[in-house]
Design a protein around this nucleic acid. Sequence first.
DNA 1: TACCGTTAGGTTGTACGCAACTGAACCGTG
DNA 2: CACGGTTCAGTTGCGTACAACCTAACGGTA
Lengths: 161, 161
Amino acid sequence: MTIEARPTPAAQEAAPSEDPLALDRQVCFALAVASRNVIGLYRPALEPLGLTHPQYLVMLALWQHGGLSVKELGRLLQLDSGTLSPLVKRLTISGLVTKERSQDDERSVVVSLTPAGRALRQRAEAVPHEVVARLGLSQDQLITLHQALLPVLRAVEHATP
Amino acid sequence: MTIEARPTPAAQEAAPSEDPLALDRQVCFALAVASRNVIGLYRPALEPLGLTHPQYLVMLALWQHGGLSVKELGRLLQLDSGTLSPLVKRLTISGLVTKERSQDDERSVVVSLTPAGRALRQRAEAVPHEVVARLGLSQDQLITLHQALLPVLRAVEHATP
DNA sequence: TACCGTTAGGTTGTACGCAACTGAACCGTG
DNA sequence: CACGGTTCAGTTGCGTACAACCTAACGGTA
């Protein structure tokens, strides 16, 4: 996950050193820091709603799709039960969702929105705007980033485990 | 952090729905999933070295810069002492680094490589190649991603807290 | 020199994220 | 029907992340 040396390094913005393990060459480091820091920008926006960023993502999934099993949440958010179980439990304690075993498959647990959970959506609609404003990126830059991330998301799915 | 509706949505790859909170519009979600999953690809490559990805980043910083104080590590990796203190402690237990208080400022702790830590660098040089091979992305795609991430990293630094 | 605000690193508590495991429910086959 | 493999949630343990707090050391000023 390294930017390899190029014949014309002048074409690149951050001039890479000769060191193949230099931090500024590590795309994964940039990815990790960007992700951490942007999620950090969500914190002040989400705190008034009583949500963490992963909890916000679960709420987004539920607002979009209605009731979802833990398995479906895991597929949508790319998280396993070890992460989702306690997370959903906290959302339950917050009164935003309810859990009940599925009728037709007792193994499955369906997570559904409470009225409070549904009501929270209206306040959440301001969150993305607030974060973008804080970050100060243009729509074009966001779309460019999104477009650059899509191949990665696709690649990870087919990566050799 | 949402891809806004556009007059010509055909120009975008993943056709966005009308829902402004739809998951596939959330750039931050794509960023978080990409970061998590790519770090996951490092796991099997780093496990033989006895390193986690954050520990690997600390080692990269030390291989590049030599001895560093915890503060400098925090600045380079964008991590605070609450994360770095136990992390460096684990590297110390692994025998890869040593800690000693700075001579000229007793508050500061300098983290240095042990011979074992220096020796590990050679084995680490194969890691990026291995991850890129696993991921199956081209150099061009990596560079595109890196270029798209740089404005975000710059933006976060100047973001309104 | 004594004081006080600042800085560096560490600790505590909470919340992910994931590997590994557990137990219950499901399901195909004999 | 019985049984063995599979699937689904949940739990445990470990390693980040980060806020909040603590202590020691520093450094300028009266």
